[in-house]
Design a protein around this nucleic acid. Structure first.
Lengths: 350, 350
DNA sequence: CTGAAAGCGCTTACAG
DNA sequence: CTGAAAGCGCTTACAG
């Protein structure tokens, strides 16, 4: 009497195949055949079983099924993101979800927050639930521990960044070329003194974007001034402060390349505050939300986020289905989207 | 030979407790005790089992464990969102994830896209995997089918919107009061002709926000003009077009209340295009990204998204742990954040 | 402190 | 076309 549920209903057990079998007067094997549409069951038994299942509101227990089945598939994958709430991560998530749904697969998502420990912890939690595969935005400098998961039959595809110390499938953007195109664009608009604000230099994409910056300057015969290259700006606030310091200098740059979305936001904020947003050019890496409400429109190098997510997911499912080939490395191009902030002319504009 | 994996390694089976037991020379029951930290095992056996588990890289199979255990918990919950990629949904997701992590629970997320069929489909998929509970942003006009899940022991907490045709736990924002405060703010700044642009009227929050608009006008003795109340604007583009039509009128409103984030974005876009963003006041419901890059800053009625998500998750876990009480209804306040767009004075400003 | 037997809900591998 | 027995990897309920 004291055990009543919130609605005053004693929670009954979920019905099992046994219950359906009992009600329809067949063996549980026959119920299994009907529930799984295996065929080879006489029409009237199919009818009786379905009727009983409906009456009892029977729902197959996929975990039990997967435990017994030869392939052991749970029809579940794990997705390790930087942070599910970040727009880049959540767009990736959606792309993965859409492919997964076509395969009847559900997605566990988790936020790693650039913490290698959490990457390991989440991976362990996913493995404990026997996901069929993992899609991972890797953090830190060692993904070698994924090798044993792969050997045990759990497939892994990395996305956005290649894994470190491990040869595995990955799908990434061409960060070097993307950054180079962005910086070239500033040079083409008459800038030669171009500041660089970037993310944590432990992140491979941050290093590649810096390399693209270096290449574009070298092509144009511009020497790199390390004093206007500011890496390791983790947050928008960090980036904002960095740009403020840059603007305070006598030899302040006439243009800025920002290598990541949060960094771009901070930089644009600093420029607005300094009322320099119409005089100093900015090109950023990564798309930003509500760009058409920002004036000047931010010129950005944008990634094909949907392409990253869906390519990674398609590759993962091919692996799950037995596709056997050496590790695949897919590199997708980034695109410069011109909106205004990158076309503010510099002192060498022609 | 033709069955080799991508890395040239034949995928071996994951080790089980049997393997660990065999290697350490104990029974699987003893392995189970050690793995689950049950205690009552002699120190040297604990040592031997742990050594063997480490050597084999043993990972407990939580599904098998949950199948056998009395409580049947999978330490997994399902989260049904409007769209994982939408900022409101993904912020909710993060808040839920953070609470779930404290409980050692993993989160399945799915996008419903305002499609009642997908709500049912995802719910079924979650149930098939025997999640311990569900957190649901309900869509459509009938959530009564969740009653049987609850009876079967799967707990459900609704968030953002109350369920229809079902008495259940929910956590929502006070939408009526929030909209009222927003519209009052416009009235206080001298506006009496205030347009309303809203989301799908099938969504309960949209109806409530419209009610708040009506109440605020009524308080001020302003009659509602239905011709400037535009509901059912699903996308930013719809809202943009609606505002354009409003602006084209001879008796165009001097202020606009936008009842949802996508709607606000569309409205702000239309105003910028018409160069009316400094003359027509706007207050919107829901937070927007990068607000400090938008000029004038958008004055918005913001929800406590983290509060919604974490309160819902806390309530769900209390239910999972046996908390037995009538359905709880939690209503969180919304807050007006003043940034500029809502303070543009109207013709009756004093 | 340790372990053999049974069983969670299902599918496999048979036999009829 | 149908079903009885065994077993997936684990925990329960015992017995020693």
């Amino acid at each position: 009497v004291s055990e009543q549920g919130a609605s005053g209903v004693v929670p009954r057990q979920r019905p099992t195949m046994r219950d359906v079998a009992a009600l329809s007067g067949v063996s549980i094997k026959t119920v299994s055949r009907v529930v799984n549409n295996e065929g080879g069951v006489s029409p009237d038994l199919v009818e009786r079983v379905n009727e009983a299942a409906r009456k009892l509101d029977y729902q197959r227990n996929l975990s039990a099924s997967s435990l017994r089945r030869g392939d052991g598939r749970t029809e579940t994958i794990g997705l390790l993101l930087e942070n599910v709430a970040n727009p880049f991560s959540s767009a990736l998530h959606r792309a993965v979800e859409d492919v997964a749904r076509d395969h009847g697969v559900l997605v566990f998502a988790g936020s790693v927050d650039e913490d290698p420990w959490r990457e390991r912890g989440l991976t362990g939690a996913f493995i404990a639930r026997r996901v069929d595969g993992l899609i991972v935005v890797p953090t830190g400098s060692d993904q070698s521990y994924f090798a044993k998961e792969r050997e045990s039959g759990t497939h892994v595809v990395f996305v956005d960044r290649p894994p470190a110390l491990l040869d595995a499938d990955y799908v990434v953007t061409d960060n070097v070329a993307g950054a180079r195109v962005g910086v070239r664009h500033l040079i083409a608009h008459g800038h030669r003194r171009i500041g660089y604000i970037g993310d944590l230099s432990t992140i491979s994409t941050a290093r590649e974007r810096l390399a693209g910056y270096h290449e574009a300057l070298a092509e144009a015969g511009i020497a790199v001034d390390p004093s206007i290259v500011m890496q390791d700006q983790r947050t928008s606030d960090d980036a904002e402060a960095a740009v403020e310091r840059l603007l305070a200098r006598d030899d302040a740059p006439t243009a800025i390349f920002t290598a990541q979305n949060l960094v771009t936001i901070g930089a644009l904020r600093a420029l607005r505050r300094a009322k320099a947003h119409r005089s100093i050019a900015v090109v950023g890496f990564d798309e930003l939300p509500v760009v058409d409400l920002i004036d000047p429109g931010p010129t950005l190098v944008v990634q094909d986020v949907v392409g990253l997510g869906s390519t990674a997911a398609e590759l993962l499912f091919r692996r799950v289905q037995g596709y056997d080939a050496p590790p695949q490395h897919v590199v997708l191009p980034a695109t410069l989207v011109v909106r205004g902030s990158g076309e503010i002319p510099g002192p060498f504009a022609t």
